[in-house]
Design a protein around this nucleic acid. Structure first.
Lengths: 337, 337
DNA sequence: CCGCATCACTGAACCGGGTAAGTTGGGGGA
DNA sequence: TCCCCCAACTTACCCGGTTCAGTGATGCGG
C-alpha cells in the first residue's frame, strides 16, 4: 500500500504542494475555502505527514527520549517508572509526540545515548530521571543545547528545569504521624544513596527526628530492590534496640520488609509499623495493607512531559512542584505495643 | 552546537558526499584507504547520521513500535511488560534501533496508532502483544504490510510470526505437581478471558484436570489486577467446597490471593497452596514466597525483537518457541492438611 | 598500441514536507 | 483610467542522506 503524500493531495485539489502545506499547518496563504477542501481530501485519503521529511526540513522530530538506568530486574517490579511513562503518554499522545525509550546500565551510557539521539536528530528533548549530585548528564545536555526536564530535586541543575515533589514535607509528615501514634524508635531504609532525592529525604528525616528529640533515628542505605530491603530490615530487627517503626523509600522494599517481619514472627502493626514511599496497588495488595506516602505519579509524569514540550517550544520553564504527597494510613501502622 | 553532516566529512576528506555514504555504509565504491580515512574523520568529529534524512531516502527509520493496551494502574504493577521491554532493548540497542512506545486504552486505538506510525513512516515494524482471537489488528498490519511479530499464541495470525511459550505444557506441569502433593480440588484464577493465551491456558487446564479425574476444576475469569484477584479468591474460598490449591494467571493476582487467605485466617500453604504464573521478584518478596511458573521474560523479549528485525530485513520468520517455562517450587505449596 | 573491463569516484536526482521569494488577479483609491 | 496593494496562490530551493548513471584513470590481454 502506498503512503499518501502532500503531492497526492495537491493533485487531487488542483493546487500546488506549497498550498497544501500551508493549509495543513494552519498558516496564512490559502483561502478558507481551499483550506477546507484540502483538509477534507487529507482526511479522506488518510494522510499522515511523513515524520522523517518533516524532521528533515528543520522542524521538530516530534519525539522525546527517556533513558532508564536501572537493572532490568528492578525496573520490572517498580511501578514507579510505568506510572511515570503512562503520565508522559497522556500529554505526548495528545500532541502526537512519540516517546522513545532506551534501557541502559550506567550514567555514562546514558550520556552516549543522548549524544547519539542528538546527532541523529531523533528527538526534540529528553526527560532525565534518577538525578545525582553533580550529575554528569547535565553539562552534556547544556553543551548539546538539548531541551530537557529533570524529574526530581530540588538540586542544582543550572538552567534545566526540575519537576519535583515535596519529599521533605512528606517524610516530616510521616515521622510526625508515627510519633503521634507513640513511636520513639523510627528507622528508615533508603534508596540508592547517590541519588539526589534520597539525599534530600535523608536530610529531612534527620532534621525532623532531631527536632522531635528522637535520638536513634537511623537510615540504612539500600537500592530499591526487595533483596536489599529484606537485608536492611533484618539488620534493623535483629539488633538489640529494635525500632518500632520503619519507613521505606519505595513500595517494593516495604513489602519485602513486611515479609521479613512475618517470617521473624513479628506482628505488623503490633510489633512493627511500616510506612511505604510511593503508594501503588502493591501496597493495598498485601496483608496488612501498607500505610503509604501517596502521590499521583501519572500526573507527575504528565506535568513533566508538559514542561518538556514547553521547553522544546522555546518557552522558558521554571522549577515546578508537582505530585503533591500525602499520607494514606492503612493497616500497617498502629501505636506500638 | 552544529551537528556534523556527511557534507562536512566530504569536505574534510576531499571527496564527494556519495563517496562518504558508500564508505560509512560498508558498500563497494571506495578504496580501502579512503574508507579508513573517512571513518576516522567521522569518528573524530563525532558523526551520527541524521535519522530523518536516512528514513526519508527510502531506507529504514531504524525504530520499532510497541503499543501497550492496559489501564495505567495495572501496567505499573505488572513486571511482565518492563521485563519484555528490557529484553527488546538488548537486541534493539545493539543495532541502535530505537523503541517507540505508546500507551493506549483500546484495541481500536492501537489500530489507529499503527496507521499513524505507518503513515508517518516513523517505525519499521511493530511488536504486538495481548493477542485476541480474531484480533482486529492483524488484518490492518497485513493491509499496511507493516512487519510485525506477535508475542503469544499459538493461534491464527496468518503470515505474521508468533513468538510463543508452551503455556499448555506449563499449566499441565503445575497441575500434575499439585496432584502429586495430594491436592484434588484445584481452582484457577485467569487473566482477561478475551486474550488468546488465556484461552489456551484454560483449555489446557481443563484437559489436564479431566485427564487426571479432577471434576470440580473451576476457572474464575479475572483481569490481572489485584482487586479482581482478591475478589475471585474470596469467591473461591467462601464456597462450601473450598479448593485446596489455586493457580493464578499472574503474580499480582497471586499476591492478592495470598493476602485474602491471610486475612481470612487461612494458612498458606497449610490450608491453601498457591501457584503464580510468571515469576518475578514479587513472588520471592512476600511471605511465604510463592511457587511460580517461571520463564525468562527478558530473553523472550529479546527473541521477539530479533525475529522482528529479521522480518524487517525481509527474511521470512516462522513461529518460534521461546521462554521455556518451568515450575519453581517455593513456600506457598505443600500437601493439603 | 589498441580496445575493453574494472575500479574509484563524482554529480545529480530523489525522498517528502517546509518556506522564502516571486507571480498572478482583483478591488479600491486617487 | 491608472496604479498600488494585498490575498491567494506557485515556484524553487532547502534539509541530509542514498543511489544510480556517468567519467576518467588504470590495468591487462592480445
Amino acid at each position: 500500500m502506498k503512503r499518501p503524500t502532500i503531492a497526492d493531495i495537491a493533485r487531487r485539489a488542483g493546487v500546488s504542494k506549497g498550498a497544501v502545506s500551508y493549509a495543513l499547518n494552519g498558516q496564512p496563504g490559502v483561502s478558507e475555502a481551499t483550506r477546507k477542501r484540502i483538509l477534507s481530501i487529507a482526511e479522506e485519503i488518510g494522510f499522515n505527514a511523513n515524520s522523517a521529511a518533516r524532521a528533515l526540513s528543520g522542524a521538530r522530530a516530534r519525539a522525546v527520549g527517556l533513558t532508564l538506568c536501572r537493572p532490568a530486574r528492578i525496573l520490572g517490579i517498580e511501578p514507579w517508572f510505568m506510572g511515570l511513562i503512562s503520565g508522559f503518554e497522556a500529554e505526548l499522545g495528545a500532541r502526537s509526540y512519540a516517546l522513545t525509550l532506551q534501557v541502559v546500565a550506567t550514567p555514562e551510557q546514558e550520556v552516549e545515548v543522548y549524544r547519539r539521539w542528538w546527532g541523529e536528530r531523533r528527538i526534540d528533548g529528553v526527560i532525565v530521571t534518577d538525578i545525582r549530585e553533580n550529575d554528569i548528564r547535565i553539562p552534556v545536555l547544556l553543551q548539546l543545547q538539548l531541551p530537557a526536564v529533570v524529574i526530581g530535586g530540588p538540586g542544582d541543575t543550572g538552567p534545566i528545569a526540575q519537576i519535583w515533589s515535596d519529599d521533605a514535607g512528606a517524610i516530616t509528615e510521616a515521622v510526625r504521624y508515627l510519633v503521634a501514634l507513640g513511636h520513639h524508635k523510627i528507622a528508615r531504609v533508603s534508596g540508592v544513596p547517590g541519588l539526589l532525592h534520597t539525599q534530600n529525604r535523608t536530610k529531612a528525616f534527620e532534621n525532623v527526628c532531631a527536632a522531635l528529640g528522637l535520638d536513634n533515628a537511623i537510615t540504612i542505605p539500600a537500592d530499591y530492590t526487595g533483596e536489599e530491603g529484606s537485608r536492611a530490615t533484618r539488620r534493623l530487627l535483629i539488633g538489640g534496640d529494635r525500632p518500632t517503626a520503619i519507613i521505606y523509600d519505595n513500595d517494593v522494599m516495604a513489602v519485602a520488609g513486611l515479609a521479613v517481619a512475618q517470617e521473624m514472627g513479628l506482628s505488623v502493626p503490633g510489633d512493627l509499623s511500616i510506612v511505604a514511599w510511593d503508594d501503588s496497588p502493591l501496597c493495598s495488595l498485601v496483608h496488612p495493607p501498607l500505610t503509604a506516602l501517596s502521590r499521583d505519579i501519572s500526573a507527575y509524569g504528565a506535568q513533566a512531559a508538559l514542561e518538556l514540550l514547553n521547553a522544546i517550544d522555546g518557552r522558558t520553564v521554571g522549577n515546578v512542584e508537582a505530585g503533591r504527597v500525602h499520607l494514606t494510613p492503612r493497616g500497617s501502622t498502629a501505636p506500638p505495643r
